[in-house]
Nucleic acid binder design. Structure first.
Lengths: 101, 101
DNA sequence: AAATTCAATCGTACATTTGCGATAAGCAAT
DNA sequence: ATTGCTTATCGCAAATGTACGATTGAATTT
């Protein structure tokens, strides 16, 4: 990409909202989050059975959700339990609320 | 991308939410929408002055917002007046509300 | 008809995303 | 130490996204 000379600076909220929205911008990730909301928590393996996707693909989506701060993983050897990251979830919620009035 | 043999089918709401979220997944587009909320409407040229981006780049972002249904353009020759697409905006709003509980 | 104005589209370049299979890494139990 | 289970990461391929300058298109005005 031929980038602008310097990174455009947006307001903090704008950047944060865009980051959350980007993480939500794929139906699989929406579905994963809906699943987590129902189940409260789940393991990667569970999701691999729910979606017709390779294990590595599911793992990547989880990684993105984690990077965005929407979920967090807790070690339950040999598994990893993923849950909604409630604090950040609330932040995202209020950002979207404010955005939509 | 080595795609799955067939497109994964998600629930309608899931697809719709992801589509809206994807459109919101860039800070420039968030900023454009915030601007539209304040101004109620504006022209492409206005935005080119607001953001340090080429006219063609702004136009592309507007196109994506239009494709997602979040804005609509009205011909005011020789300009085009862009506004929030209120009906779809409300749909998006309620989808996000429902999603975040 | 020609010129002007504004915005969309085209063509290009490079980055990022999405998806897969294969491999590695972490941990528990044997 | 080896095995087995689970998940992350790597390497690849293809698609999509972001940005630009240049060109085209639509519509009014001269």
């Amino acid at each position: 990409m031929k980038r602008s000379l310097e990174h455009i600076e947006y307001k903090e909220d704008t950047e944060a909202l865009a980051k959350f929205a980007k993480a939500l911008g794929h139906p699989t990730r929406i579905a994963i989050l809906k699943h987590l909301e129902n189940q409260s928590c789940c393991f990667t393996g569970d999701l691999v059975n729910v979606f017709p996707l390779a294990q590595s693909t599911v793992s990547q989506h989880l990684k993105e959700l984690k990077n965005a701060g929407l979920i967090k993983g807790e070690l339950k050897p040999p598994k990893i339990k993923y849950c909604i990251h409630q604090e950040n979830w609330n932040i995202a919620k209020s950002l979207f609320q404010k955005f939509f009035d």
